[in-house]
Amino acid sequence: MAGKLIANLIVMGSTIIGRAMLQAYRKALENANKTGVAHEAINNIRRASKTMTEQEARQILGVTEQSTWEEIIQRYDKLFERNATSGSFYLQSKVHRAKECLEKVYQKNKQDGTPT
């Protein structure tokens, strides 16, 4: 009898605590959203995992789908060199990543045998 009572009490207590914690968690999340902390955190995660899209890579180097690999390399060399001397390292990185991205695309196309 007493055992059953105690067991009941424990179950009830833990559900109440659980509910309270869930509410606190929700509230914290809400506050974080308000201050933009969560937003920033999400952005950071996205930034870390993000690789450049082909579209952006083409925009950065200023080439179209029809451009040949030689044209891309030419553009890349110019932009890379310019940003090394008087641009910023960040932009130089973007140019480099864009080339890296397109390199993969063009290599794949070559293996597939489609002329680009």
């Binding site: 993000k50 450049m52 899209t53 990185s93 990543r97």
Partner: peptide, 24 residues
């Protein structure tokens, strides 16, 4: 020796990115 920054531009420009782009 400096490692290149990974990925593309941020979808929404942040203060950090601004400073990096201009090198200030």
């Amino acid at each position: 020796v400096r490692k290149f920054y990974p990925g593309g531009f941020e979808t929404e420009m942040s203060r950090r990115e601004v400073a990096l782009i201009l090198g200030v």
